[in-house]
Amino acid sequence: MNRTWFSQPLETVATWWRIERRDGVALGFTSHDRDIIFGGLRHRTAPGMVPSAMRRSASLELDTAEISGALSHDAISEDDLVAGRFDGASITMGLVDWETLEAESLFAGTIGAVGREGAQFSAELASLKQQLFRELVPRTSPTCRAEFCGDGCTLSVAKYTHEAALSELGNGRLWIKVASADPADFCFGWLRPVDGPDAGTAFRIRATQADWLILDRPLSTGAESGMRVILKEGCDHTLSTCAQRFDNAVNFQGEPFMPGNDLLTRYPAAQ
């Protein structure tokens, strides 16, 4: 049944929005003065959060929306925003009748840039139309364009993902040691804590040095040795690594032997 919203002088309608973070946490909110349960999720009242006007078009022009509000709700804390737990999360917004629980989605997309000013936060929302602006024909590259164990790579994620425990932290929790792991295998991979304040948050491993893994940002203050983590091995996306380490050169998504742009500037040498 298609409903025409706001067709009557007085209606029992509230706005709602649902956030699904990349770590698997799903959160629901509503502008109503009490919690509403529909679609298999409790949408908690969040009077401090306000969705902006949503603009939709029938063309390929991007739909736009924004959420702003106070950092007062337990489910959205300043620490989580700073840690990037909401970056790239999928979001759906719409209307719901709080009496009949009839609901309709008006906007679907992902959370882009999240800003904070004092006790207020704001989040820009990117609609699903943004996927239409992806490059369909990939550009040439001397290194592999595929995400390691992702589309095109074909390697198994489970095979190169390991459970381990932190054995030592150093340099302001930016350097870590992991028991029973060869650091060289995890350069350019990622680490996701299972315990502690950073549970569920992914940290990129940008380099290794001796027995240390160097993260792209430090772990939180409460991180300590003995905490469980999930580690995914990394790849430097070169043909030699793909062939020698992973025996996967047949799926290499790059052109390592193609001449570069400097070929156009070369002059013939006299014999």
Score class of each variant (00 low, 15 high):
Ser57Leu: 13
Leu191Glu: 00
Leu169Thr: 00
Trp190Ser: 02
Cys187Val: 15
Thr238Phe: 06
Thr154Tyr: 07
Met54Tyr: 07
Ala269Thr: 14
Ala123Thr: 03
Thr4Ile: 07
Thr30Ile: 09
Tyr160Asp: 00
Ser31Val: 09
Gly28Ala: 04
Ala202Gln: 08
Phe252Lys: 12
Asp198Pro: 09
Arg139Tyr: 10
Gly189Asp: 02
Leu41Val: 07
Ala146Tyr: 00
Trp98Arg: 04
Arg139Ala: 12
Lys177Gln: 14
Val250Glu: 02
Leu264Met: 09
Gln8Glu: 11
Ser57Phe: 12
Ala243Leu: 03
Gln209Ile: 06
Ser105Met: 11
Thr4Pro: 04
Leu213Thr: 08
Ser180Val: 01
Ala207Leu: 01
Phe29Ala: 10
Glu66Gly: 15
Phe133Gln: 08
His237Gln: 12
Pro268Thr: 05
Phe6Lys: 07
Ile214Tyr: 06
Gly28Tyr: 03
Asp79His: 15
Val157Ser: 14
Val25Arg: 14
Val229Leu: 04
Asp97Val: 05
Arg206Leu: 10
Asn2Ile: 01
Leu95His: 11
Ile67Cys: 12
Leu106Gly: 09
Pro259Phe: 06
Asp185Lys: 10
Ala243Arg: 05
Arg139Cys: 03
Gln120Asp: 15
Met227Ile: 04
Glu20Arg: 10
Gly200Met: 10
His73Ser: 01
Ile36Lys: 04
Val25Thr: 11
Val194Gln: 02
Ser240Asp: 07
Asp151Trp: 03
Leu10Gln: 15
Glu147Asn: 09
Leu174Pro: 06
Gly94Glu: 07
Leu219Phe: 03
Ser105Leu: 14
Gly170Pro: 08
Pro259Thr: 04
Cys187Leu: 12
Arg192Phe: 12
Ala181Gly: 05
Pro197Met: 07
Cys242Asp: 06
Leu106Val: 03
Gly226Arg: 05
Leu81Asp: 08
Phe107Asn: 07
Ser156Val: 04
Tyr267Cys: 00
Pro268Cys: 06
Ala181Asp: 02
Arg173Asp: 13
Ala164Cys: 00
Gly94Trp: 02
Ala181His: 03
Asn261Tyr: 06
Arg56Ala: 15
Trp16Gln: 06
Arg206Gly: 01
Asn261Gly: 11
Glu168Tyr: 05
Ser156Gly: 06
Asp262Pro: 01
Leu239Thr: 05
His43Gly: 09
Met54Gln: 13
Ala103Ile: 04
Gln209Arg: 14
Pro259Glu: 06
Val178His: 09
Ile91His: 05
Val82Lys: 08
Cys153Tyr: 07
Gly226Gln: 01
Asp80Met: 14
Ala202Tyr: 05
Tyr160Phe: 12
Ala58Leu: 15
Gln120Trp: 15
Ala126His: 07
Arg134Gly: 00
Gln8Arg: 14
Gly254Ala: 06
Asp185Thr: 00
Asp74Phe: 05
Leu166Tyr: 02
Met227Phe: 01
Ser156His: 13
Arg21Ser: 06
Glu135Ser: 10
Val50Gln: 07
Arg217Met: 01
Asp35Asn: 11
Gly260Lys: 13
Asp262Leu: 04
Thr30Val: 14
Met1Lys: 12
Gly84Lys: 13
Ser57Gln: 09
Arg42Ala: 15
Arg21Cys: 04
Phe121Ala: 09
Gly112Val: 07
Thr100Met: 01
Pro47Trp: 01
Gln209Thr: 11
Trp190Tyr: 03
Thr238Asp: 09
Asp33Lys: 15
Val114Tyr: 10
Gln271Ser: 11
Gly109Met: 02
Ser122Glu: 00
